[in-house]
Computed example of a mutant assay.
Amino acid sequence: MRSIRITFAALAILGCGGAWAGASVTYVEPDKFLDMPFSKIDRERVLQDLSDHFAELGKLLPAGQELKVEVTDLDLAGRIDHMRRSGNEIRVLRGSADWPRMELRYSLVQDGKVLKSGDAKLADMSYMDHASMINSNESLRFEKQMVDEWFAKTFGVKVRGVRG
């Protein structure tokens, strides 16, 4: 199987002076990610939804900064119930060993200079305990909450809905 790289980039223009802050996301071999939807359209929707979320977070960075992220692994919350597979996939959340996980490399850049970089392994083993804090209709709500907490902690930026 050929290695696939899907890149979604998003930059947000801030203010009249053309100052910008943003985020770009690259998915490294996404067909090897654990627990992704079967349908190509659903897989693309998941990746686009996460890219859009990183772009929104990028708007919280100081003007002139850009976050570059390479997602190297992704495991969504819950598990697909293969016994019920009928045209629609059903994701079952049990709150046991089915927590969301993500592995990524990142760099925060300003004026061509790397301000901060590293590798991160995100996981939220108690994701079900946060359910009351999160909009229950939001897609990928557990994964987004996990990313929000990492972003706030790593970059010292206040993210709406993040505890602490």
Rank of each mutant, 00 (worst) to 15 (best):
R2P: 11
T7H: 14
F8H: 10
F8I: 08
L11I: 15
A12H: 08
A12T: 15
I13F: 14
G17K: 15
V25S: 02
T26A: 09
E29Q: 13
E29W: 05
P30G: 03
P30R: 02
K32E: 09
L34R: 13
S39K: 13
D42E: 14
E44G: 00
R45M: 06
Q48D: 01
Q48T: 01
L50I: 14
S51N: 01
F54N: 00
L57T: 05
L60F: 02
L60H: 05
P62D: 13
G64V: 13
G64E: 13
Q65Y: 12
L67S: 06
L67V: 09
L67Q: 07
K68Q: 14
V69G: 04
D75K: 15
L76T: 07
A77Q: 02
G78K: 12
H82R: 12
M83E: 08
R85S: 04
I90H: 05
A97D: 15
E103H: 10
E103A: 11
R105C: 01
S107C: 06
V109W: 03
Q110H: 07
D111M: 09
K113P: 03
K116H: 01
K116P: 00
A120N: 06
A123P: 12
S126D: 09
S132C: 03
M133G: 02
I134W: 06
I134L: 13
E138K: 09
E138D: 10
S139C: 01
S139A: 04
L140R: 05
R141V: 07
F142T: 00
Q145C: 03
M146A: 02
M146D: 00
M146E: 00
D148P: 06
E149F: 04
W150V: 05
R160F: 01
G161M: 01
